[in-house]
Nucleic acid binder design. Structure first.
Length: 666
DNA sequence: TCGCCTCGAGTTCC
DNA sequence: CTCGAGGCGA
């Protein structure tokens, strides 16, 4: 605590030091020790003191970050040493070829050591320190000339305004200004609330924030900075890149993380490992790795081509975003009749696959995007899997407005929209499209698990009128199947055997398979614990609501199903067909070591499927959930884990590797 | 009543 | 994976 009676001078210095310490812990160590509110209070106190004692003002006081002055209008700044960009490569062969060129150009007997850093997806900046004080900050621009953003860079808490003793006389430091995903989301929420267009990605947001007219806005954006190189270092210049990074840290400058490797094979292996196990935990966008020859003498020897240094290479992950044109919009009909608009786009390569179809979810989404047929759109693979349209980048001159269909695209029945709901629905209960989806769901793995009954088999069976509801599956004959193009002798036998085997599936699976509105895998499971089939046929809404997670709406839906003629008939016919619908056995291991624990699995596990892992957790008395929240005990991350890792990091939920999870099993 | 936590439903590509 | 929406505790 600061002494109350200290001289204003001493108190000022103490306050400044304390705030610098908090800045350092917040951005450099990522371990703040005070809340934002406490920090703001300290800052307010500092500003009050400085206002009362103008004679004690200091240009490098942390209070200068929030001066409220107007930024210089981004005058052009010529870089003392051009800021060249590195050559890009997207595949291993190019990286190996580059490694060979490096080795060939080094003197005989010398081998390179490679230093590998994350390539942060932000914007490059050059910070000039003279006599340890920050005098200028400039964007990269075209590499020769950038823009003066000094006033705004002063607002970035990760950028020290003053370096400690021992700093080089003159330093032109280069690095990346960027933003974390969490801060980006916060900014976008605020922007949306203020009625502004949200930023597309953290990079654009960081760029926009650094080029604000009003530095106070920059200050509110929580930009970060990591150093990755320098243009000028006068006085005690380091002799290698890793030495440079270490010196940065000594000077209190946040420096990029780095690994060193002697062989290119190790670099390539790291590239793969990094994406799955390091990147998701970083919390900010990285689009690849930068590989540099560590030793500066070797770097000088290798020199430059016309465009870029020979001693470095950016090894990039495939682009996650691409642009294409919306050629048309089609409407798909789901199992429950929900009509979903799907954009057909001109095929475009994105994140390793060619995308031609993108879901639009619903018509509100189309409204939000302001999308019309013919528009040019930005597409990304959300969580690297499901494509989605981020925004319209160029409007078509005469774009066709997308309107909800009046008739079901499959059966032509009228389309309805229920009050207060987003979705449009086909209300025909015998719509063939709905029947197809219902059968696919019935046969799916978590339901009746009839592997031979996939999309194409379902299509044919429905088209031929051989199956009109799920119970008809159990009266299919071999002759009927052989009549279809899809089935030869063996395949028909297989399907019939699978259908036969499905008859002993437990009640929870059957309930899920029936496709009762509001009843999925989990609800089916809890229902099957409490009721048998007859119990369900007789249960009142109140009876049903006594089950946890079943409220009035779900109860009504279940009761309506079992009270309806179709529901009763379906249950009777399934029973007659020989379905046992037995209660699932609860096999909880004695002692239930996972009792009270909730696990979330993400990514691909190697020694079991996700379902098997969840099965194990439940058998040990734990719960398996699909989404990460503060109630989650552990996230288990396999290969190629996605956004759940980020969420876990944000909420401070412990993340286990598959190995660690296996060690917890008895 | 609100806000958090889950669940259900729909979807992509190979 | 993401969105909408139901359930339930604070």
């Amino acid at each position: 605590m600061r002494p109350r009676k200290a001289s204003p001078e001493a108190e000022l210095e103490a306050l400044r030091a304390e705030i610098r310490g908090h800045d350092r812990r917040y951005y450099l160590l990522d371990a703040p020790t005070v809340s934002d509110a406490e920090y703001d209070a300290l800052m307010a106190r500092l500003k009050g003191l400085e206002a009362a004692h103008p004679e004690l003002a200091s240009a490098d006081s942390p209070s200068r970050r929030v001066s409220g002055g107007v930024a210089s209008d981004f005058k052009p700044v010529r870089h003392a040493v051009p800021m060249l960009s590195l050559d890009n490569s997207y595949d291993e062969a190019d990286v190996r070829a580059w490694d060979e060129r490096v080795r060939k150009n080094l003197p005989p007997g010398q081998s390179p050591v490679y230093l590998v850093e994350p390539k942060i997806d932000g914007l490059s900046c050059a910070l000039t320190y003279e006599g340890g004080a920050l005098v200028r900050a400039a964007t990269r621009g075209d590499g020769e000339t950038g823009e003066d953003v000094t006033a705004n860079a002063r607002q970035v808490r990760a950028i020290p305004l003053r370096l400690p003793d021992g700093a080089p006389k003159r330093l032109e430091l280069r690095g990346e200004v960027y933003m974390t995903f969490a801060d980006f989301e916060k900014v976008n929420e605020d922007e949306k609330r203020a009625g502004h267009e949200p930023f597309v990605n953290p990079r654009n947001c960081a760029a926009g924030s650094l080029r604000q007219k009003d530095p106070r806005i920059t200050a509110s954006r929580r930009l970060r900075f990591l150093a990755h190189s320098y243009g000028v270092w006068e006085g005690g210049e380091p002799s290698s890149h890793h030495e440079f990074l270490a010196r940065c840290r000594d000077l209190g400058l946040p420096a990029n993380r780095a690994e060193r490797f002697a062989e290119i094979d190790a670099v390539i292996a790291y590239f793969a490992r990094f994406k799955d196990s390091v990147m998701p935990g970083l919390g900010f966008a990285v689009d690849g790795l930068v590989i540099k020859v560590d030793d500066f003498a070797q770097q000088r020897r290798l020199g430059f081509t016309a465009k870029s240094p020979r001693w470095g290479l950016a090894f990039k992950y495939p682009a996650q975003q691409a642009t294409s044109t919306v050629a048309s919009v089609e409407f798909s009909v789901g199992r429950t009749g929900t009509i979903t608009p799907v954009a057909k786009v001109k095929p475009v390569f994105c994140a390793g696959v060619t995308i031609s179809s993108v879901t639009l979810h619903n018509f509100e989404e189309i409204g939000r995007l302001g999308l019309k047929v013919g528009d040019r759109v930005l597409i990304e693979r959300a969580g690297e899997v499901i494509p989605k349209i981020v925004k319209v980048v160029e409007r078509a001159k005469r774009g066709k407005t997308i309107v909800p269909p009046e008739a079901c695209p499959d059966c032509g029945s009228p389309v309805i929209k229920e009050e207060g709901r987003v979705a449009y629905r086909c209300d025909n209960p015998s719509c063939p499209a709905q029947l197809r989806r219902t059968l696919e769901h019935f046969a799916s793995r978590p339901a009746m698990d009839i592997a031979g009954l996939g999309d194409s088999a379902v299509d044919q069976l429905v088209a031929r009128g051989m199956v009109k509801d799920v119970a008809d599956v159990y009266s299919l004959t071999k002759e009927q199947l052989l009549d279809l193009e899809l089935f030869a002798d063996k395949k028909a036998d297989n399907l019939l055997a699978q259908i036969e085997a499905s008859k002993t599936k437990t009640l929870d699976r059957v309930l899920n398979a029936l496709g009762i509105r509001q009843v999925g895998e989990k609800t089916a499971e809890t229902l099957a614990e409490r009721f048998d089939v007859d119990g369900l046929l007789n249960a009142s809404e109140e009876d049903l609501q006594s089950v946890s997670d079943v409220g009035p709406i779900v109860a009504k839906s279940i009761a309506a199903f079992f009270a309806s003629g179709t529901g009763k008939r379906l249950v009777r016919r399934l029973r007659d067909a020989g379905l046992t619908m037995a209660k699932p056995e609860k096999k909880v291991v004695a002692g239930a070591p996972f009792a009270g624990k909730t696990f979330v699995f993400t990514g691909e596990l190697s020694s079991f499927t996700r379902e098997e892992a969840e099965e194990r957790v439940k058998a040990l008395g734990g719960k398996a959930s699909g989404s990460v929240s503060s109630k989650t005990s552990y996230v288990v991350a396999g290969e190629a884990a996605g956004s759940k890792l980020r969420k876990a990091a944000e909420l401070g939920v412990p993340v286990l590797t598959e190995e660690q999870f296996k060690e917890m099993l008895p």
